[in-house]
Amino acid sequence: MEHVLEEVLPRIEICEEECKGCGLCIHYCPPKVIEASPSLNSHGYHPAHYKGEGCIGCGICFYICPEPGAITVYMKPSKGEKR
């Protein structure tokens, strides 16, 4: 049962309070696994939201996002460092 507790990788984490809803990550995400949240954050933006699965760990959302801390990408350990 141990592997059930393991994190699902790769995946992204979006800090919704640091998101300005610019939509760039949504637009440029190759597998299209990011969407605009229907709810508003405290700044009044619809923040980006990870659909929860399908991330390929490419890192594009991280570099395309203008906010330093809005997106964190957790990559797979063994697969290469290709970004």
């Binding site: 300005k20 991280f62 395309i64 203008p66 330093p68």
Partner: peptide, 17 residues
């Protein structure tokens, strides 16, 4: 927590790089 830059501004991207 967030920068003063407008949504989608290039400065943030460059800052990160």
């Amino acid at each position: 927590l967030t920068t003063h830059y407008c949504p989608g501004c290039g400065h943030g991207t460059l800052h990160k790089i």
